[in-house]
Computed example of a mutant assay.
Amino acid sequence: MKKLCIPVLALMLMACGQQHKPEQERVGDSTRTGRTNVEPVDERSFLGRMANSDLKEIKLGELASQHAKDARVKKFGEDIVKERTASTLQLQEIAHRQGLTLAPELSRDDQDEIGLLRERDDMDRMYIKRMVHEQKRTADRLAQYTNAKDTAISSYAKRMLPIVNARGDEANKILEDMRKQMNNRDISHD
């Protein structure tokens, strides 16, 4: 009975200290908790942001794997789908152990971006350009959590960072090759 009372008392005290601050029920949606500088919430929000990022990259990767004209871009999209799906499963496992439910969803802006990208004549180049940006942003986020207090999150960040960096390097290389091809075409038409 004493073992049960101490955690319940601790929870009650924490609840009293969090007056007027709504709890976040789902991690990964666009709601905010209103709390700042609280490590567990920050780590929980990391899980949600990563799950949302994975979902966006999966959707973009599916688009590239189905509609890209360049074989390298198509393969890149396929690889992103596989890697980010595996990443999402890892995030869900971490969240489950913490008693959280990840609810990744695409923002309206992300949905619009994917829709517009689908219709572009230069979809391959714009997709790779977008992925250079996404990989950089994801790598920066992961680097912040390689020493997180939560060892599962820290371990996840350390495992994923080299994968994301390698994928970012690959996207940069593809984009650079595309730029060279465009410059060669421009010169040959003069």
Rank of each mutant, 00 (worst) to 15 (best):
M1H: 04
K2S: 10
K2T: 13
K2A: 12
K3A: 14
C5Q: 11
I6S: 09
L9R: 02
M12V: 13
M14I: 15
A15D: 07
C16A: 15
C16Y: 11
C16F: 14
Q19D: 10
H20L: 06
K21G: 04
E23Y: 03
V27A: 13
T33I: 01
R35V: 09
N37S: 12
V38P: 00
V38R: 12
V38G: 00
D42G: 08
D42E: 14
F46I: 08
L47C: 05
G48W: 11
R49W: 07
A51R: 08
S53P: 01
D54W: 01
K56R: 09
L60P: 01
G61A: 06
E62W: 02
L63K: 03
K69G: 12
K69W: 02
A71F: 00
R72L: 08
K75T: 04
F76L: 10
E78G: 07
V81W: 08
K82D: 08
K82Y: 04
E83F: 06
E83T: 12
R84D: 11
A86T: 03
A86K: 10
A86S: 10
Q92P: 01
Q92H: 03
E93D: 14
A95P: 05
H96Y: 05
R97T: 07
Q98M: 12
G99Q: 04
L100G: 02
A103E: 14
R108M: 12
G115C: 01
G115D: 09
R118F: 06
R118P: 01
R118K: 14
E119P: 01
D121E: 15
D121W: 01
D122I: 01
Y127L: 06
I128F: 06
K129M: 13
K129C: 05
R130Y: 04
M131D: 08
M131V: 01
Q135V: 02
R137G: 14
T138D: 10
D140Q: 11
R141S: 13
A143Y: 02
Q144D: 10
Y145K: 05
T146K: 13
N147M: 09
N147W: 06
K149W: 00
T151W: 00
S155M: 04
Y156R: 07
A157I: 08
A157M: 07
K158V: 07
P162V: 03
P162H: 06
I163K: 11
I163P: 02
R167V: 07
G168T: 08
D169W: 00
A171H: 08
R179H: 03
K180L: 15
M182T: 13
N183Q: 14
N183Y: 00
N184K: 11
N184P: 00
N184S: 13
I187Y: 08
S188P: 00
H189T: 11
D190K: 14
